[in-house]
Each structure stands twice: as C-alpha cells, then as structure tokens.
C-alpha cells in the first residue's frame, strides 16, 4: 500500500464511530478473534508446562489464580461468547439468511441488509458476552 493510493489503512478500518452498530460489531469481531488467537497460543504454552512435571505445572497454575489472571480469563470468556454469537449471525448472513430480499428501493433507501434482525443479533452478542464475563468474574473471585 502506498501513500498514492490514499487508503484509510488500519486506522480507518478499525474506526467504529461512523457507520453504526454494525461497524462496532465488525471491530469487536476482529479484536475478539485476535484475542482468542493469542489466548490459544498462550494456552498451548501453558499446558505444555506439564512436561516440566508437577512443580512446573503448579507454578504456572498459580499465575492464573491471581487477580490479573482472573480478569484476563473473564475477558477471554467474554471474547469467546461474543465471537461465537456474532459469528453465527455473520455466517447466516454470508449464506444470505436474514439479509432481506431484493426489491425496488424507495427513498430514503434504508438498506434491507442492515435490518433489525441483525441489529438484535449484535446487541444479543454484546449482552450475552457481558453476562458471561460477569458470571466468570463471580465464579473466579467467589472461590
């Protein structure tokens, strides 16, 4: 990508403020995907410590038992729930489900693909993720 192309770049791609809740969901989907990927790599590293024996395994488990560890795990729970629910919405949309039917458009041209079903799907994903995070925090800190 060169300056001549006048691309918005990652800053423009990640800007969630201009195009409504759909673009917020788009950003959260990317962030949660990257977060889950990072957790997956860290999880493999963590579980591979069992090769160091009982002591090494216990040392690593202690790290996840701290306040920071609990908060990170709760965020992972939230990311997982959001990515799953919103992912199902996006996959259905990709198959043409719930995106409306082609028709002659009338002014003011409300796009049928941005309909209330998808908005409900996005808000549901956010609310469910928030509940899952709260539940995770309650369980982890309530030990």
């Amino acid at each position: 990508m060169t300056k001549d192309e006048h691309k918005e770049g990652i800053g423009g791609m990640a800007n969630p403020r201009r195009y409504g809740i759909e673009r917020v969901a788009y950003l959260l989907m990317r962030l949660s995907g990257l977060g889950l990927l990072a957790y997956f790599v860290a999880h493999i590293y963590e579980t591979s410590n069992i090769l160091r024996g009982q002591v090494g395994w216990d040392e690593l488990l202690e790290m996840t038992s701290t306040t920071e560890g609990h908060i990170i795990l709760s965020i992972v729970i939230g990311m997982c729930v959001f990515h799953t629910v919103n992912g199902i919405r996006v996959m259905l949309g990709h198959g043409g489900v719930g995106v409306g039917k082609p028709a002659r458009p009338d002014y003011p041209y409300e796009p049928a693909s941005q309909n209330y079903r998808h908005k409900i799907g996005i808000y549901s994903a956010i609310v469910l993720a928030a509940f899952a995070m709260m539940y995770g925090l309650a369980v982890l800190f309530g030990e």
């Binding site: 082609p102 458009p105 941005q114």
Partner: peptide, 22 residues
C-alpha cells in the same frame, strides 16, 4: 466480512452488502 458500511452510504439504495451475501 459483512460490515455493511457500503449499504449505509449508497445514495441510490443499491444495498451492495445484500447483493454480496446473496
């Protein structure tokens, strides 16, 4: 990735996001 911004800015009601998913 079905962000839908294309459909929101279309001045003629084309709804490209719908067309792409179909």
């Amino acid at each position: 990735h079905f962000a839908g911004s294309c459909s929101q800015v279309c001045p003629k009601g084309v709804d490209p996001a719908m067309g792409i998913q179909l």
